[in-house]
Amino acid sequence: MTAMTAPDKRDNAPILSVRDLKVHFPIPGKGPFAKDRPLKAVDGVNFDLFPGETLGVVGESGCGKSTLGRAILQLIAPSGGQVAWLGKDIVGIPHRDMQPLRRDLQIIFQDPLASLNPRMTIGEIIAEPLVTHKPELGKDEIKTRVKRMMARVGLLPQMINRYPHEFSGGQCQRIGIARAMILEPKLIVCDEPVSALDVSIQAQIVNLLQELQREFDLSLIFISHDLSIVRHICHRIMVLYLGNVMELADRDSIYAAPRHPYTKALISAVPIPDPEIERNKERIVLTGDLPSPLSPPSGCVFRTRCPFAQEKCATDVPTIDRVSETQEVACHFHDSI
């Protein structure tokens, strides 16, 4: 079986369609009469996600990855745009209508231990979504399902009455995955699920997520700053910079032939664990730091660090252009650079 063949998307309708999604946080201005200033954490994001597909979301710290993930799940109220889940817009729908949808929409977090309630046993933690969403289930049935899921994610079922602090980071992440999977959801937003783990444990968790994906036809949004892992697990990749999409493409295109200057720099900056290759590869080293998200550059938001920036970049916002069947790029000069 070839796990990494992208699902044949054309056969299916997207499970999720995000259109012009915006999240602007109001930041109080300085001084008594100053107006709030918007921090545009996510500023007009578009994409479709198909059943069984993994979309990677990458970019530097503060570029809006977590905010995007949460806004999709309506854990943060979007400031604008649509999030169509199975064809229906869920932005701003009443809590009572949202609640049943949560069964299909789950999330796992970066810090495994901090995201688990220290006073609950892991059995109670994993059972919680079942108790909320399927109150009709009896105690024994819940316990059976919890134990089955524990075994599935590689936890010994006899550990059901232990507390989170008794587990290692990797095991805590398995607990988080078991809780997210217990309702057999259709989509899981994974927010840096392996960033806090050792290399040897990262691989275990990535393999587990891929197995679960195949078994349950899960869709995943995989948020990460590690472009090597993303290459391994994702079918398509979205590159964010200051809340804007720079490039969106399938995996093979983006790694073999990145088209946006930021994507190129990002990929070339990742160290390769091979001395010969790492010491001889060509690198694009960006100068400077990320600008403040409160006063993003005019025109192209990347222009203050872009080695190819020209006059037009300061005045005109680039549109996101489809450069091939599978690749979209937001740069005025993607044809010439």
Binding site: M1, T2, A3, M4, S168, G170, Q171, D198, V199, S200, I201, Q202, A203, Q204, V206, N207, Q210, D226, L227, S228, I229, R231, H232, D252, Y255, I267, V270, I272, P273, D274, I277
Partner: peptide
């Protein structure tokens, strides 16, 4: 072997060292 590499297309699953530190 368990280091993912950005310069390589992937095989089916990653090599993982079993167990815990």
């Amino acid at each position: 072997k368990s280091m993912p590499r950005i310069d390589r297309a992937n095989e089916d699953s990653m090599f993982a060292i079993p167990g815990q530190p």
